[in-house]
Design a protein around this nucleic acid. Structure first.
Length: 861
RNA sequence: GCGGAUGUGGCGGAAUUGGUAGACGCACUGGAUUUAGGUUCCAGCGGGGCGACCCGUGGAGGUUCGAGUCCUCUCAUCCGCACCA
């Protein structure tokens, strides 16, 4: 028998698929459609195993759905704008575009080696002018529809490099290149008004529109949107004290008006107009605010910063308690972007307020009494009490539960005319301006006379200029320094004007690519999306990607769909009907005696010990972590394909862990997958040509046990693939192979039926092997065009079952009964079992629980 | 800080969703075959005990005839946080 050689066989089948145009999307709209999409990759340079896992899963689904008679769309493209290309330009002097397209070419060839059933005719990169020109058009349409706004917002500013930094470029509050302390700086920027869609984005999470999404992702989105009902109200300042800027009151927002009687202070954000007014006349206040600006712009940095406040010489009047006054602060943990940028602090029931108050020595008055606590002795230490309870120390609110007290407090404030109920969202508008070169230019022009003017549609696209790579040596955005590109006449008045030099956040690029894929490439010149095509293909039936995108990318894409619907480009609101979030690929880490990270390929592991491959020096094995360049625990898919073949890598990456969980890559596992490939080949090969002469109906001598195994396997694997349980589907293939081995003496008809099913069952996982087996067995055409095997329901039923029998919950025996035996008969059989009787000696049977088809439990004492 | 997840043999995991814990694979042990093998095949493989049996799903309680699965508390690890993609 010829040894199975993937090096020759795999490229042969990939060429056959290409020649037969097997995976071009069919124009045939009579079949039900199925759109399967994996999150497209960033062209970083090489395919990694995370990609292989992601695209293998999508490919299993795509091939499975094809076999089940669907018209499948399974495209691929490149999320190609972004910071790494500019970093590469700075380091190597190559133009970001040169670097990006070279990476794409390399990665495309690597991806093709995996044998994916992808329609490559629809491939594009987001940095193609042919793509981003239509993104500019979409933006102009959104602008017309009132979904675009310009306003001021903060960026991370490196004062030495004089450049804006991404959060990723801020390390421990310092710029990654200069090492200078990063500051917050206000810039005028472009925003998309995602908050206008907050209510619908939230509602769709629960009204069944996203029932195909995992619960945890829906929950994360719900928390991110963060709808809260509360009270917006004014705290008036004590007359006689002079508030900065002549303010006589400050408007605060709270979700806990039930704790108003426990208020200890009132505070505003450093960017609040009142704080700004104070800074204008008070240098100490100004320097405090400047100090606050040194915190980074990330949420984590702001939350973790030490609570600090600046006392202004003003007091606020308590709304309910005559004569009580509250000190007034500027505080660094109040966010201008949420609510009104001002709060009252109730330290007993809010941890941030408590931390603040402990620092400045203010009063802590509990007003919510936890169940079981005594009003006279309950006190709050270093942990605020945020649980349920009864309101006390609170005048007219005393005795109410929290929810009732919230309603009562709001009603009272409203009747006093001091405020009103108000709903707030944590979600902020989407800032889309980036001060970078390698992104989609924002189609706007700044004119001194006309203000900000949209680029007329006839002048699209606004192309990125051709530049010499040397411009990237200077920090900052090169677009600012290219007068020939930047200086243009105003489209309105023809006066000298300037192009917008900010480019779009790359999240915009990935917010509509799924709709572009749905458009036939023949229509790509006509507009961003062909409506008829989109109406047929969208929504995406199955979207697959990493859970790290659970919030931002998915939320932005959901917003974009709504905006495209508003502007007539799409008919849908929700782009992704079903979502699957896959786990990461991990690997052990290795360090040499000097503490340097080592690549797995440079390490030999034997008997749990590791040594260097070159000089046998001992190597320490570190924890298993997500594959990353910094820890060098990366394995190149290319080398594994060369060693074991694409089918083996696909098989192993899907076999070892549930798809939503992390999977650890091990060479032993890959080698095991390779053995499986060879084993299937050796199982099928002896039956060469047999399928051609296979009779349509089973003979009288057919082996019932083997036929049952075949049909049960078909039913189970079909179910497992539908439910994304690829690891279980693969385990069942192994079980089936074991059953086939045991049934070596079964009649030829039943064996050929089994082999024919086996080949079609493995085809989504190991497509090259399946084709080779299919051809050898004498199957008609390509197996990628063959239909999925059907399970015969009559062969799925069992006639007798083994039932475990428990005495007092412990397994003591086993009985064999007919599958349809009645509970009485089962009870009699169970009590008659010899081992059961031994354990019942000296006991009285009190109760017998019979679960038909499951178990019998005898309760005795 | 806020939000989300995960803990079962030496390892990855399975358990018909409250019903025989450890399917299947990897690793390991013993045996057989082979010119050699990092080949293939057979057997074994949670811990303890000669054995009948006993213990066992991160930890502590609870509900139930019955708990890996449900409830309460707790510990550990991982991921995301709006300018990384």
């Amino acid at each position: 028998m010829a040894r199975y050689n993937p090096k020759e066989i795999e490229p042969k089948w990939r060429k056959r698929w290409d020649d037969a145009k097997s995976f071009l999307t069919a124009a045939d709209r009579s079949k039900p459609k199925y759109y399967v999409l994996e999150m497209f990759p960033y062209p970083s340079g090489r395919i990694h195993l995370g990609h292989v896992r992601n695209y293998s899963m999508g490919d299993v689904i795509a091939r499975f759905k094809r076999a089940r008679g669907f018209n499948v769309l399974h495209p691929m493209g490149w999320d190609a704008f972004g910071l790494p290309a500019e970093n590469a330009a700075m380091q190597t002097g190559a133009h970001p575009g040169t670097w990006t397209y070279a990476n794409i070419d390399h990665m495309r060839s690597e991806l093709k080696q995996i044998g994916l059933a992808i329609d490559w005719s629809r491939e594009f990169a987001t940095c193609d002018v042919g793509y981003y020109r239509w993104q500019q058009k979409l933006f102009l349409d959104f602008w017309k529809a009132g979904l675009v706004e310009r306003r001021e917002s903060y960026v991370n500013w490196d004062p030495v490099d004089m450049t804006v930094l991404a959060n990723e470029q801020v390390i421990d509050g310092k710029g990654w290149r200069s090492g200078a302390t990063v500051e917050r700086k206000k810039l005028s920027q472009w925003f998309l008004k995602i908050t206008e869609k907050a209510e619908d984005l939230l509602a769709a999470l629960d009204d069944g529109r996203l029932k195909g999404w995992p619960d945890n992702v829906r929950l994360m989105q719900r928390n991110w949107i963060g709808k809260s009902k509360g009270l917006q109200m004014k705290f008036h300042f004590v007359s006689g004290t002079s508030a900065p800027g002549g303010f006589d009151a400050v408007e605060i927002y709270t979700t806990r008006p039930d704790t108003l009687f426990g208020a200890s202070f009132v505070a505003v954000a450093p960017d609040h107009p009142l704080a700004q007014a104070a800074a204008a006349s008070d240098t100490a206040a100004a320097s405090f605010i400047a100090e606050c600006q040194k915190t980074g712009t990330s949420q984590e940095a702001i939350d973790k910063a030490e609570k600090m406040g600046f006392r202004l010489p003003v007091d606020a009047r308590h709304p309910f308690i005559e004569g009580r006054t509250l000190p007034f602060y500027i505080a660094n943990f109040i966010l201008m972007g949420y609510g009104t940028g001002a709060v009252f602090g109730c330290p007993a029931h809010d941890q941030r307020d408590l931390d603040f108050v402990r620092k400045y020595g203010l009063e802590v008055l509990p007003v919510v009494l936890p169940p079981g606590e005594d009003a006279g002795t309950f006190a709050v230490g270093d942990t605020a009490y945020v649980g349920p309870g009864v309101i006390y120390n609170s005048g007219f609110l005393n005795g109410l539960a929290i929810d009732d007290a919230i309603d009562a407090a709001i009603a009272k404030i409203e009747s006093m005319g001091a405020g009103k109920a108000s709903t707030q969202y944590r979600l902020r508008d989407w800032g889309v301006s980036r001060q970078r070169f390698w992104g989609c230019p924002i189609p706007a022009i700044h004119c001194d006379r006309c203000g900000v003017v949209p680029v007329p549609e006839k002048d699209l696209p606004v192309k990125l200029p051709e530049v010499d790579a040397s411009v990237f040596k200077t920090p900052g955005n090169p677009l600012d320094r290219l007068p020939a590109w930047r200086n243009v006449p105003c489209p309105n008045c023809s006066a000298a004007a300037r192009r917008e030099t900010d480019t779009f956040d790359t999240f915009i690029d990935s917010s509509w690519y799924f709709a572009r894929f749905a458009t036939d490439p023949a229509a790509w010149e006509n507009g961003p999306i062909d409506k008829a095509d989109a109406d047929y293909w969208l929504p995406v039936d199955q979207y697959i990607g990493g859970v790290e995108h659970a919030i931002l990318h998915l939320l932005y894409a959901r917003f974009f769909s709504r905006a495209m619907n508003d502007t007539g480009h799409l008919s849908i609101d929700e782009p992704f009907a079903n979502l699957f979030t896959q786990g990461m690929v991990t690997h052990a880490t290795y360090k040499d005696s000097q503490g340097k990270w080592l690549l797995p390929e440079d390490v030999v592991v034997e008997g749990g010990k590791a040594r260097r491959a070159d000089n046998n020096e001992a190597v320490s094995i570190g924890p298993i972590e997500k594959m990353s360049k910094s820890k060098k625990n990366v394995v190149s898919p290319k080398e594994i394909v060369e060693k074991y073949g694409a089918d083996a890598i696909r098989w192993f990456i899907l076999s070892d862990s549930p798809p939503e969980r992390d999977v650890e890559w091990t060479d032993a596992g890959a080698a095991g997958a390779w053995k499986l490939v060879a084993r299937i080949w050796e199982t099928v090969e002896p039956a060469k040509g047999a399928l051609g002469a296979h009779a349509p109906h089973p003979p009288a001598t057919a082996d019932l046990a083997l036929r049952r195994a075949t049909h049960q396997t078909v039913a189970a694997i079909t179910d497992d693939i539908e439910g994304f349980r690829f690891n279980k589907a693969i385990a069942r293939i192994y079980e089936f192979l074991n059953a086939l081995k045991k049934a070596e003496s079964a009649d030829p008809w039943s064996r050929i039926e089994a082999l024919s099913a086996l080949i079609r069952l493995i085809a989504p996982f190991t497509p090259h092997l399946a084709e080779e087996c299919w051809e050898t067995l004498g199957g008609a055409g390509l197996v990628c065009d063959a239909s999925w095997p059907e399970a015969d329901a009559a062969l799925l039923e069992r006639d007798a079952v083994l039932l475990p029998v428990q005495v007092n919950g412990k397994r003591r025996g086993e009985i064999s009964v007919a599958a349809d035996a009645d509970p009485k008969a089962i009870e009699v059989a169970a009590l008659a079992d010899e081992s059961v009787q031994r354990h019942l000696e000296g006991l009285t049977v009190r109760k017998v629980v019979v679960v038909p088809g499951r178990i019998v439990n005898i309760v005795a004492g």
